[in-house]
């Protein structure tokens, strides 16, 4: 298992967004439950980090902390090297739940970032048209959210967030509810946006394949309390090919890591951990290269 400093970035440039010793507790009645414990993470400008973990592990909480949507219990988030004061348009967020405004059409939803800044429609019509075409929804621009399919809604949400050109885009399981074909199409679509716009992306998913395919770096968050249990460098282009042996080996390895973590949570018997660790498929490669 990978240990050590996960906040290490692969490049020499200072990280655009980073967190140090981040913890988050939520109170449940009289008790407080630790949801995240001591998370250190640094994201390079223009990078694509995927966060992988099982349901309820605290991935959404981590993302909300990174975007300044909720305050940490301790530790801090640094944005461009400075403490993040709160919600900022420089860090865009595509929430896990549907956040399209039901009273606005596709076109109005995508233009909402301009409207809510007090701009007149004439000032941003061109930009909205550009993003409508970019996400392939020009013909659906007059429809309301309840008339859209799940995939269309996700594309509108993403377009709405990138239209205001954030430095960092946080995406919380944007494709979870979609079938495999659509999921793959939208993954390609997101990759293309990332390459076109040079936006730094942090994407949360519980799909191992998606995490490997999209990320430049992959982080596995373990459960209860959420903490980083594995970091994988994915800059090797072979990880873009889902039939490559390296891809498959990593996929198996990560599935094992997650399963072992879940098993240890369920059994709550520390003695199982050694046994479980030996059952993790151990591929020939080193999952966390330190170079």
């Amino acid at each position: 298992m990978a240990t050590g400093d996960h906040s290490q970035t692969s490049g020499a440039t200072p990280p655009i967004i980073a967190c140090q010793a981040l913890t988050k507790d939520f109170s449940r009645g009289r008790q407080t439950a630790p949801i995240l414990a001591d998370v250190n993470l640094a994201v390079d400008p223009g990078g694509f980090v995927t966060i992988l973990g099982q349901s309820g592990g605290g991935k959404s909480t981590l993302l909300k902390l990174l975007g300044g949507f909720i305050p940490p219990t301790s530790g801090q988030v640094l944005f461009h090297g400075l403490p993040l004061p709160g919600i900022t348009p420089k860090i865009g967020m595509v929430f896990q739940e549907n956040t399209l405004y039901p009273w606005l059409t596709v076109e109005q939803n995508i233009g909402f970032g301009f409207k809510v800044r007090g701009k007149q429609p004439a000032q941003y019509r061109q930009q909205v048209k550009h993003f409508l075409e970019h996400v392939g929804l020009f013909s659906a621009r007059q429809l309301y959210p309840h008339q859209l399919s799940g995939g269309m809604k996700q594309r509108v949400s993403i377009a709405r967030s990138i239209a205001v050109q954030p430095d960092v885009l946080l995406l919380d399981e944007p494709f979870s509810a979609l079938d495999i074909q659509l999921r793959r199409r939208l993954q390609g679509f997101l990759s293309a946006i990332w390459q076109d716009m040079a936006t730094t992306m942090v994407l949360v998913t519980h799909n191992v394949e998606e995490a490997i395919l999209l990320g430049q770096r992959l982080i596995v968050v373990g459960d209860r309390p959420g903490r980083i249990i594995e970091t994988v460098d994915l800059s090797d282009p072979r990880f873009r090919d889902r039939y490559d042996a390296r891809f498959l080996a990593l996929q198996r390895h990560l599935e094992g890591v997650i399963e072992a973590d879940a098993y240890m949570q369920d059994s709550r018997l520390p003695s199982h951990s050694a046994e479980m660790r030996s059952t993790i498929p151990n591929p020939a490669f080193n999952p966390s290269p330190k170079t």
């Binding site: 949507f69 348009p89 739940e97 709405r160 967030s161 205001v164």
Partner: peptide, 16 residues
Amino acid sequence: PLLMTAENLGGGSFNR
């Protein structure tokens, strides 16, 4: 999230 999104997109409190 609906309110947070508006703030996240750059909306001030009056516009929200």
